[in-house]
Design a protein around this nucleic acid. Sequence first.
DNA 1: ACCCATCATTGGTGTTGACCTACTGAATTG
DNA 2: CAATTCAGTAGGTCAACACCAATGATGGGT
Lengths: 149, 149
Amino acid sequence: MAMLAPSTPRLTALTPYLLSTVGKEARTLVGDRLAARGLRLWDMAVLAALADHGPQPQRDLARRLDLHPSDVVKVLDGLARLGYVGRERDTADRRRVLASISEPGRGILRELTAQTAAVGDHLLAPLDAAERATLHALLLRVHAAAARP
Amino acid sequence: MAMLAPSTPRLTALTPYLLSTVGKEARTLVGDRLAARGLRLWDMAVLAALADHGPQPQRDLARRLDLHPSDVVKVLDGLARLGYVGRERDTADRRRVLASISEPGRGILRELTAQTAAVGDHLLAPLDAAERATLHALLLRVHAAAARP
DNA sequence: ACCCATCATTGGTGTTGACCTACTGAATTG
DNA sequence: CAATTCAGTAGGTCAACACCAATGATGGGT
């Protein structure tokens, strides 16, 4: 269990530093929960993208998640071996492979989502519900702005 | 320049995911600026800790920054080679080595701090001043809570 | 038909971050 | 004063991550 250091004022005065360390902590906590199921962060991201946007060529996944196409293959290989995703050639364009989430995949995704929410509860313990909502909304706007070129 | 992906609702609904991605982005942006000066994130953290808490044994730095003692040595080696820190045996306990920041060290730290603030401005562009303050305050509380055992 | 672009895949590379072990010299404890 | 604990150091491991080049199959354009 990673433990944040009681840090130094010069650093904690900088929002990027706080974002970086708190983000790293979140990453580690979620990563640990996923690791307990033999999965990694990208696995969850891919499952979520498939659940949200339906079956799609791997190219789209790569663009959507900003993940290298050759790494998409590797992630899907792992998920397919566990039965969480299926792959079919697109009959319209036989170069493409349509990846889709399976029922077991949806099940594990629900679990992972719950786990992640639990991590959130733990991490945001010092904040009340309204504050958590505020934080989330602000982060969402920052995220959205950083996402577009 | 890393670019965040336009992500998927199921993920952006989870605060830990937002913290993780935005944090990673902040980390990368700051890291790039440091790399332009041949430094890394830990270098800045160590300089800041020395500036904030004065000369101190490396053991304290390790605890303070949650950095492995053997890695503290390596970071200090690099900083010492650049003349940003000095090291002296503690006369009271000659096992200890007191690390301290030098004047050039303070200078570079000021620069790095300005660079980091600039990254903050860029990253938090969509937020107005009050919102940035709110975000910072919330993150600070989360950080402080996660820091203590 | 032919050529070129696209998609998936394979099998790598280099970097990084965190960690671990063994060793030295110094202090503390019994 | 012997044994143990502690600080710093040197050197190495290890997994994760992002990225790259080459290949084979397919599609689209002219």
